[in-house]
Write a protein that binds this DNA or RNA. Sequence first.
DNA 1: GGTCGCATTGCGACCCCGTATCATTGGATC
DNA 2: GATCCAATGATACGGGGTCGCAATGCGACC
Lengths: 137, 137
Amino acid sequence: MTSIPTGRLEDTGYRLTAPRRAVIDALARTDRPFTIEELSEQLPNIGRATVFRTIKLLHELDIVCRVPLEDGRIRYERSHSGRHHHHLICSECGSVTEFVDPALDEAIEQNAENARFELDSHNAELYGRCATCRRLP
Amino acid sequence: MTSIPTGRLEDTGYRLTAPRRAVIDALARTDRPFTIEELSEQLPNIGRATVFRTIKLLHELDIVCRVPLEDGRIRYERSHSGRHHHHLICSECGSVTEFVDPALDEAIEQNAENARFELDSHNAELYGRCATCRRLP
DNA sequence: GGTCGCATTGCGACCCCGTATCATTGGATC
DNA sequence: GATCCAATGATACGGGGTCGCAATGCGACC
């Protein structure tokens, strides 16, 4: 359980209202990636649309990040690192692990440069089975 | 306009029916990525569900590939290379360019290995502005 | 403390994309 | 041809997300 930088909300001119605080608190209580629906169930007093709107907001502020699954579904996750990172997604247990790799980012930037492409953002997801599910010690 | 390897369908035990041929022909006529809806509009005589089913099939056979957009929407595209590749996606004109980079794949595999992760698949998308939209010569 | 203005909320309707159902069709094989 | 089963089309359905709008409440200013 890590604190969430609520200050970033106010700094950008958004109000830190009770519903938003409730969403953020619920967020702080989980380390696992979640769907909006799961989050919404934990917050029966908060309107579904508000949860969607708040997550969208937090996503724009880089407080949460999208985790696209292989089948096209989407989960969200608190971005602990705050840094740009990628995901290892286990198809067996559904766990999501972040990793940071400057070499990978470098390779991506190099490709953009070769194509004379102005890079705004990128993402990379790795799908497979995690060490735990592989019963590795 | 490139021919599509219809043989692959029959080789895997699927029938090459008239609706499937129609979808494949429509596919062969475009080089740009497309949504299912766009494709379906070009094929008014083919049921919507059939278009979905056929694209799903062609995706499994690696004849088309998914192009996930930044906002979560999905387009499909004929995979020309037939090889594993990644995408440069222009947010201005929507163009999608494939590229192949063994070094990038290598970096990805290395990360999986470090995390003792058994890699099934991965994807990487680069978002930004293409050379044409940047008015580069 | 009032009250004013506007961002925010909640509700419900709605939309988009994809899938399930199921009766019907039509290809391949004999 | 006859047969059998995959494939099709129409339609209903479902998940996930957004929209519109009236009501609320936060913050600011008097």
